[in-house]
Amino acid sequence: MLTDSDLQAIWLTIRLAGITTLILLLIGTPIAWWLARSRAWWKGPVGAIVALPLVLPPSVLGFYLLLAMGPNGPFGQLTQSLGLGTLPFTFWGLVVASVFYSLPFMVQPLQNAFEGIGERPLEVAATLRASPLDTFFSVVLPLAKPGFVTAGILTFAHTVGEFGVVLMIGGNIPGVTRVASVQIYDHVEAMEYGDAHRLAAVMLIFSFAVLLAMYTRRSQPRREA
């Protein structure tokens, strides 16, 4: 039913979303923790920068990334001097772009979860002489688990649905940067509406299933509380 190139695009999309989610878990957690705990005056500006991808049109983000990662851009010159070449038109270029693009979808749910824990459990842990790192892993992580699940699912799903940014910096290379959303766009452009419908249906079912899983979880009453 789906062609080989459709399956290739789906697999590529899953890989991109999976790697992006893992990287954002590592980067987003400390940022969210800092945003939740800090009282520094520049907490506001940092929070605003993290939220920017929510507001900016993907074409703007994609265009800036194309310039910044290109041979004359600051980031492109950095990667070139490291011997990595330039990132546009590569899978890792898409990963970098997706990390920017999906950043708020990781940070904001985590920040909410961390803020929801409050001071009390941390103070108790401190009086029991737990080190900050210990506190984080044995108190914060278990308490913030629902936040991590939401953040992970949202980040993954949002990266799967990414289109404008990929279009701007990907170059539509099969197996490297041609993700499912671009493949659908291609089918539509080529007036292959049947193929477009089939792949679009897969995406639609996937998105619905993800959101359904999340909302069902959320609406269940908490047993432990």
């Binding site: 194309l66 310039l67 990662m69 290109g70 041979p71 004359n72 330039t86 546009p88 038109f89 279009l167 701007m168 170059g171 539509n172 290379i173 766009y185 291609d186 452009e189």
Partner: peptide, 20 residues
Amino acid sequence: KFVQGENISQTLQFVFTGNA
């Protein structure tokens, strides 16, 4: 060595920005 633009404007953009 192909990179594809979705339309001719984007194809130019890749070259214009020095990426291709």
